[in-house]
């Protein structure tokens, strides 16, 4: 006591902070952890229920109602919108979307892994290279898609240069082909592949590679038996992060694909703009959502338990 020269009242009961109302509210909340949590959760939860869950439910309801003449729906119940999907035209669209999403994922993985590997081992270049990967991630997707048009259209930069250089008489048709959509998707989603792979390679303890070396593994074996299995969680996460938006992509095929390369996303949009078949559009949209959530569930089953969450 003497050392700190305490005034005598300092040892008495502590003056309670805050005003009466605040004190009473806190005293009421203190023994009620559920109430505390839901006080914080309430506003955001109400918003998300009202403007995410409820819309999805309404959309789901619309998908089983008869089509209204000028858009919208009429009262009643029908599963016509779903049976319509069995028509070859729509099955083709489903198949095309799926194939394209798989191709995008595979190409992104083939390109993204070496890039992520190099960045993880690039020493003092690391932060710069990482910034170069992150930057497109944040750049407007619309602007980047437009940039692809600027390069690929018949009067675009690539074709003009080819012709100017005398390599071609006619422009190579690149835009509005399956190739341009695939290129656009890979270009658009490659950062989603690189970042999680990089994150898992970064965590890899270099001592493990040295241990493999001491145990007699040559570089190729070391990669195959140590690096690759340990970075598999990142690779799988990257594949999911590319596969999902590719499945639901709309803008890329809309701008780079033209009418022939219709994907589910465009089919949905058409039903609400030109075709005015809301039940069918809602059904297509609902199916798309289910497929995406199924892909996530498959991922959660595949994922080893110790994977870090998020990206």
């Amino acid at each position: 006591m003497t050392a700190l020269d305490m005034p005598p009242q300092a040892a008495g009961p502590r003056s309670a902070p805050g005003n009466g109302l605040r004190r009473r509210a806190l005293a009421w909340l203190a023994p009620r952890p559920q109430a505390q949590a839901w006080t914080l959760l309430a506003p955001g939860t109400v918003w998300m229920l009202g403007f995410f869950l409820v819309p999805v439910i309404v959309m789901c309801a619309y998908s089983v109602m008869p089509r209204g003449e000028y858009g919208g729906v009429d009262p009643g119940f029908t599963i016509e919108a779903y049976t319509r999907f069995l028509h070859p035209v729509y099955l083709t669209i489903l198949e095309r979307t799926f194939v394209l999403a798989v191709a995008t994922t595979v190409l992104s993985a083939l390109a993204g892994y070496p890039v992520a590997y190099t960045i993880a081992r690039s020493g003092r270049w690391k932060s710069l290279l990482l910034f170069l990967v992150v930057l497109p991630f944040w750049t407007s997707f619309l602007v980047r898609t437009f940039a692809m048009i600027f390069l690929m259209r018949d009067t675009g930069l690539i074709n003009s240069w080819l012709i100017a250089a005398g390599l071609r008489q006619e422009p190579i048709p690149m835009l509005y082909t399956p190739f341009s959509v695939l290129a656009g998707l890979v270009y658009g989603y490659l950062p989603f592949m690189v970042l999680p792979i990089y994150a898992s390679l970064e965590k890899l303890d270099p001592a493990l590679l040295e241990a493999a070396e001491v145990l007699g593994a040559r570089p190729a074996a070391r990669f195959r038996r140590v690096t690759l299995p340990l970075s598999a969680p990142g690779l799988i996460a990257g594949c999911l992060l590319v596969f999902i938006p590719s499945l639901g992509s709309y803008l890329t095929s809309d701008l780079l694909g033209g009418a022939k390369e219709l994907l589910i996303g465009n089919l949905v949009q058409n039903q609400f703009s030109t075709a005015r078949n809301w039940p069918f559009g809602s059904a297509a949209s609902f199916i798309l959502m289910i497929v995406v959530l199924a892909a996530v569930l498959v991922y959660l089953r595949l994922r080893p338990p110790d994977t870090v969450r998020g990206w």
Binding site: F51, F52, V54, P55, V56, V58, M59, Y62, I244, P245, L247, G248, S249, Y250, G265, V268, Q269, F272, W278, G281, S282, S285, F286, L288, M289, V292, L293, V296
Partner: peptide, 14 residues
């Protein structure tokens, strides 16, 4: 993870 087009359509419908 929900595709933007799905979120957009469902909100439009709502």
């Amino acid at each position: 993870v929900t595709p933007e087009i799905v979120t957009g359509i469902s909100l439009l419908v709502l």
